[in-house]
Design a protein around this nucleic acid. Structure first.
Length: 609
RNA sequence: GCCCUUGUAGCUCAGUGGUAGAGCACUCCCUUGGUAAGGGAGAGGUCACGAGUUCAAAUCUCGUCAAGGGCUCCA
């Protein structure tokens, strides 16, 4: 890639991977790719049936990055099988087989399926509308399929596909039905695209928060304690504290008050809230204490509701905005836990707004603004927003649903954010807005959610006294911005690939003494930094400078300060920035003030002196 | 929960039935060294846990737990 001088506009410091000229279109954006992947799944199925005559075919759709095919086979496929299957696929490609679309009657399709004894196909056929189409692949293989496909396997680039993995999957996605063997593959137009796709997969692996969590000593999950329970190590805990401090301040700034509520409560509370009925299987079991049964909390809402109900409220108090970093425990089934992304104990940045019906629009807009402020501080600036409306089964009056849904829409429009409508996708107790954030390598993560709730105020009989002295039901808004601190921490770590911005790094500056003689000078400087809240350490390992640099870089410390005789004499530090390279010598007093200022302003690098 | 795979030192991994290994990290010694690995010595493991087979199990079998890739579910 050559860069012209005209295009060489200064770029802001960025953690993004280097822009590449190779575009990787998604299947849904590229009809040619769709045909390739769809056809490739047929080639895969044909190859499997050649090698494993007992394998029964089911479905084989494209995915955004490739394709898969589900088989019912007596034995699971192994990695070695994949190699053999790939070879067989290459044979099919090189024999230049035509793919032909044939329209048949239902009876004809059924006859053909029965002939081959493919029960899954029969079930698929039963669900199909006319016209029934099938695609042949060569003379002796065909599959029920709506298409479209390439015309000939010679159009499929043998150097641009790969079989990726084999996994279990349920027939029709139903865990009560047959377990099938799914083979995942990917296919592209060119070998370069395939290579780029594989490079990006590697990149995602490099950013894996579980890997970085261990390497940077941020957190661990200990077998002895149990699955899905997180231990925050000093470095991770320090970061979490910085995130929490920022979060608290942002909430105070925005008119919230903070609550602390218990971790357990009498089981009757959960009966009243309804969780015992519809959430029981996600809760840890109850515990007996004296004569009462207690329940570990899976959610914070009932506690905030009780706090609201602790005394009579006036309409003049509303809106009430209460937030809590509330730690909840949920029973997650074995096998679903995943690093910090899916755990059994986690802290929600939960908040509830109690307001008047006419305040909904303003309050939602307020939440959207706060959400943007908080997420953008962590460099998440691109969102995908979904508005979910009333489902079939739901509670509450039409007028309230209308008002609430309008309030959400109005807020989104005023904010100027594009959104997709998920018709009927709301909870039974109210409509909601979900927000997904896009990370540095284009992945989307669901974090923030804003939900209206017509259920809990009803169940707990929440009231306020209106202007006319009557008792009215307040509107309740649930919202979380991070979703959970653990999950957000994982996403953020992957977004930065562990290269945290200066203000967030657990260790911001590491001073590297070249000789022992300069230690007193280094220690004095470290003291000054620490006193102003800068997280500075001295590397006491006594290794040579090269090694100290290497260790500092590996721990992704934003600033390394080399201190030798020269620096000690002149009262300076030779700075090496992870993002910006060698910064040269800097007056130590200037380093102290600039570092402190950078923390104040939450900067990604050292601020101006 | 289901399918497959895996579990050996803090980390990454060798070790296919016969006395438990390497590199990095850690501790100590030598080296006082100027921008990504100086040298030497040492310490560190109930081979995830429990049963079984065997004269003998890290190794074979079964069970449990946990992790990884998926499915289902989800913040």
């Amino acid at each position: 890639m050559s860069s012209s001088p005209i295009a060489a506009t200064p770029q802001p410091a960025s953690v993004e991977v280097q822009a590449t000229t190779i575009q990787l279109p998604k299947t849904s954006e590229n009809p040619a790719l769709l045909r390739i992947r769809h056809s490739m799944s047929h080639v895969l199925a044909m190859a499997v049936q050649r090698l494993f005559p007992k394998a029964q075919v089911t479905i084989g759709p494209w995915t955004e990055n490739g394709f898969y095919y589900d088989f019912d086979n007596p034995d699971p496929f192994t990695e070695a099988d994949l190699k053999a299957i790939r070879k067989e696929m290459l044979k099919i490609l090189s024999s230049r087989l035509p793919l032909e679309r044939i329209e048949v009657s239902r009876e004809e399709a059924e006859r053909r399926i029965r002939q081959q004894n493919e029960p899954y196909k029969l079930e698929i056929l039963a669900g199909l509308q006319e016209p029934i189409t099938l695609y042949t692949l060569g003379d002796d293989w065909w599959d029920l399929c709506a298409g479209p496909h390439v015309a000939n396997t010679s159009e499929l680039n043998p150097k641009a596909f790969a079989l990726e993995s084999v996994a279990g999957a349920y027939w029709r996605g139903d865990e009560n039905r047959a377990q099938l063997q799914r083979i995942y593959g990917t296919a592209w137009e060119t070998a370069e695209q395939l290579a780029e796709y594989q490079r990006r997969k590697q990149e995602a692996l490099r950013r894996d928060h579980r890997r970085l969590g261990t390497d940077l000593d941020l957190f661990s999950i200990e077998d002895e304690a149990g699955a899905g329970l997180v231990f925050w190590h000093p470095r991770g805990a320090r970061m979490r504290l910085l995130i929490e401090d920022f979060w608290r301040q942002a909430h105070f700034d925005d008119g919230y008050e903070l609550l602390y509520t218990p971790h357990i409560a009498d089981i009757e509370l959960w009966r009243t809230s309804g969780h015992l009925d519809f959430y029981a299987e996600s809760m840890f079991g109850p515990m007996q204490v004296d004569e009462r049964q207690y329940q570990l909390k899976p959610m914070n809402c009932p506690f905030h509701v009780l706090t609201y109900a602790s005394r009579l409220r006036s309409y003049r108090e509303l809106p009430i905005r209460w937030a809590e970093l509330g730690t909840v425990y949920r029973y997650e089934r074995p096998g679903v836990m995943h690093g910090l992304m899916r755990v059994r104990g986690f802290t929600q940045d939960d908040a509830h707004v109690f307001c008047l019906p006419e305040q909904i629009g303003d309050e939602i807009l307020r939440v959207l603004n706060l959400t943007e402020r908080i997420l953008s501080t962590f460099d998440f600036r691109h969102y995908e927003i979904h508005l979910s409306t009333r489902p079939e089964k739901s509670i509450g009056e039409d007028s309230v649903w209308d008002l609430a849904t309008k309030g959400l829409i109005e807020a989104l429009e005023r904010k100027g954010w594009a959104y997709k409508v998920d018709e009927g996708g709301g909870a039974f107790y109210g409509p909601k807005i979900d927000l997904k954030i896009e990370d540095a390598i284009g992945r989307l993560w669901q974090c923030s959610t804003i939900q209206l709730d017509f259920n809990l105020p009803e169940r707990f009989n929440l009231e306020y006294v209106a202007a006319d002295g009557s008792r009215q039901r307040p509107i309740m808004i649930h919202r979380a911005i991070f979703g959970s601190l653990e999950r957000f921490f994982g996403i953020m770590t992957e977004n930065y690939a562990g290269d945290f911005p200066f203000w967030l790094a657990p260790e911001q500056i590491r001073l590297l003494p070249v000789t022992d003689e300069v230690l007193p000078y280094a220690e004095a400087l470290q003291q000054q930094l620490v006193q102003l809240g800068v997280r500075a350490k001295i590397d006491h390992s006594g290794e040579r400078l090269g090694k100290l640099i290497r260790n500092g870089e590996q721990m992704k410390i934003p600033l390394l300060g080399v201190i030798g005789a020269k620096e000690a004499e002149t009262g300076t530090v030779s700075l090496r920035s992870r993002r910006d390279g060698d910064l040269g010598a800097l007056e130590s007093a200037s380093l102290v003030s600039r570092a402190a200022a950078a923390n104040q302003q939450r900067l990604a690098g050292l601020g101006e002196g």
